[in-house]
């Protein structure tokens, strides 16, 4: 079976970006498409802001209040200043997943570089929030509650802390890439019908849940960094 990116490159007039291979340029181009879609839609909605919402504005308001409710549920009211990060993650991951359903496109989130970048952003952000909020005391929770076991706990906590961005990146990447590979596989069996059934399943279940889980874990990790001193 041919490389999926090569297959899509034959359908589109591929734009070679300097210094990148064809499939890397495709990922970058569809990342730009996702960004244009998000920014364009939001600028359009905000410039036509009405007191009585209708159409797109309804969707934007629904999404905003939904995420706000979740933030208050998980982090409490003090988590509300971090709403922009969570919303950005949700929008980009969601739109990035669904861009991959366009014929002849690749998901930007089906590339490990994209998801690793997002996971690192989230990781650095919540660690800095923890340090800025609690100062040096933030590192106390790495040592566990019992002083004698501190060295062992420290190693374990560091490993589990570093596993977080890794699993965050790999989870999204493997889900989306797995879905794309199954689409390509079904296309090689039959061109009409079967792949669409899988795409329907993939888009309604996998992509939605992965989008939600990525932002949910962002909230959970941020909440953990905010509440680091409450346990001691």
């Amino acid at each position: 079976m041919a490389n999926p990116a090569e297959h899509t490159a034959s359908l589109l007039p591929a734009i070679h970006l300097p210094g990148l291979t064809t499939d890397q340029s495709l990922v970058v181009e569809f990342t730009w498409l996702a960004m244009i879609l998000i920014i364009g839609t939001l600028v359009f909605v905000i410039s036509n802001w009405k007191k009585v919402p209708g159409g797109l504005q309804n969707i934007v308001e629904l999404l905003t209040s939904f995420i706000e409710d979740y933030i208050v549920d998980i982090m409490g009211p003090k988590g509300l200043p971090y709403f922009p990060l969570v919303m950005t993650v949700l929008l980009f991951v969601g739109v990035g997943n669904y861009v991959g359903l366009l014929p002849g496109s690749v998901s930007p989130t089906g590339n490990l570089s994209t998801t690793a970048a997002w996971a690192l952003i989230v990781f650095v952000f919540y660690e800095s929030v923890g340090v800025l909020r609690h100062g040096i005391k933030y590192f106390k929770h790495f040592f566990g509650p019992i002083p004698i076991m501190a060295p062992m706990m420290f190693v374990m906590e560091i490993i589990s802390e570093l596993a977080r961005p890794f699993s965050l990146a790999v989870r999204l990447f493997a889900n989306i890439m797995g879905g794309e590979m199954i689409i390509k596989l079904l296309f090689s069996f039959c061109v009409i019908g079967l792949p669409v059934v899988w795409m329907l399943w993939d888009s309604t279940i996998t992509m939605l849940i992965q989008t939600f889980i990525f932002s949910l874990l962002t909230m959970v990790y941020l909440g953990g960094a905010l509440a680091a001193d409450d346990e001691h």
């Binding site: 979740y70 549920d73 998980i74 699993s167 790999v170 989870r171 493997a174 889900n175 797995g178 849940i209 939600f212 889980i213 949910l216 874990l217 959970v220």
Partner: peptide
């Protein structure tokens, strides 16, 4: 339902990761 669903999804994500590592 609302709070349980949140933590169910977190648990689901954490369990799923093992299968995805195997897939990779």
């Amino acid at each position: 339902m609302k709070t349980t669903r949140t933590w169910f999804l977190v648990a689901y994500a954490l369990c799923e990761t093992q299968a995805l590592f195997a897939f990779l």
